[in-house]
Design a binder for these strands. Sequence first.
DNA 1: TAGGAATATTCTTTTACAGGAATATATAGT
DNA 2: ACTATATATTCCTGTAAAAGAATATTCCTA
Lengths: 113, 113
Amino acid sequence: MSLTIMALAEPNRLHIVELLRDGPRPVGEIADKLRLRQPQVSKHLHVLSKAGLVEKHQSAQQRIYNLRPKPFLELENWLESYRYLWEERFDRLDEYLVKLQKDETKKKGKKHG
Amino acid sequence: MSLTIMALAEPNRLHIVELLRDGPRPVGEIADKLRLRQPQVSKHLHVLSKAGLVEKHQSAQQRIYNLRPKPFLELENWLESYRYLWEERFDRLDEYLVKLQKDETKKKGKKHG
DNA sequence: TAGGAATATTCTTTTACAGGAATATATAGT
DNA sequence: ACTATATATTCCTGTAAAAGAATATTCCTA
């Protein structure tokens, strides 16, 4: 998870991933389409590879990179634990503020009594 | 999207977000639980705030931070465009390799004829 | 096996950004 | 007004990591 997010946080790497969403691509084509230098693309792909986001297949001199599902699936699972944020009817903030209010009332009561 | 991911990519910020998943928290409590210094927490919260991931509410001297749904929802939507990765029956890689194979065959044919 | 094409690696330089320390600001209570 | 508490801001420094440049490696073809 953390590795996945860190790999995706670099803008050019995110672009590469978004390009690969449309299908597998050799390094040179990625460099062309994104107007990056080949060595930087290779380096970014290396990082993405370490994070398990892409895999490499060889075809003559070319290296074809394509996305791997696992980290995306994991990201999706992680996100699920935040789904309550837009699905819950009432905010937890309200809850919290009401709780604070109550605690405050208690304190004052104690002091006086 | 890009902003969201970049904000989440810093480990301590991710921890903060995961802590806030359980409910709103004042700065000091975040610092305590994550064993971070207060100024760093404030700074991280500032970044998270700029990315729209958190909002701040005031209660006496305390500032209560809590998660905002929007960026999570957007992340979820973004992820949806990758869902084919684990839902599709056949790999796009196979497709691509077969295509390469065909192109190669064509080339050789041309040369000879 | 020489040469060319595609990609990877290495080394250096540059830059963004996280942390540390000190200080400033805001709010409440006395 | 003064003090304490909670948080924010500023300035400085160190460092990780991205880009640039040059070179190495791998593989195919003639």
